[in-house]
């Protein structure tokens, strides 16, 4: 429930986004964040995006997680 991986928004349909983590897609509601755009990274918590994350930071995290075999 808590440990979130940065998810990339690949599509937005109203209040709902399709997000992607290393090729796996799921849905996240966007009600709780401002001005999300396709290409942004978000942290998703229990089905809701709760924050956008700095893209550089997100990419660094994803690279590290891939490097140590977590994702």
């Amino acid at each position: 429930m808590c440990v979130a991986v940065p998810s990339k928004i690949v599509e937005i349909d109203g209040d709902t986004a399709t997000v992607e983590v290393t090729g796996t897609r799921s849905h996240a509601r966007l009600d709780l964040i401002e001005d999300a755009e396709v290409g942004d990274y978000v942290l998703v918590h229990a089905g809701f995006a709760i924050t956008t994350i700095d893209a550089e930071e997100a990419e660094e995290t994803l690279a590290l997680m891939t490097e140590v075999g977590l994702i």
């Binding site: 709760i50 924050t51 700095d54 550089e56």
Partner: peptide, 16 residues
């Protein structure tokens, strides 16, 4: 955790 956390937090979420 500056890339994700701001001083005032997520105002929309707090309002909800």
């Amino acid at each position: 955790y500056p890339g994700a956390v701001t001083e005032r937090g997520n105002l929309k979420a707090l309002a909800a």
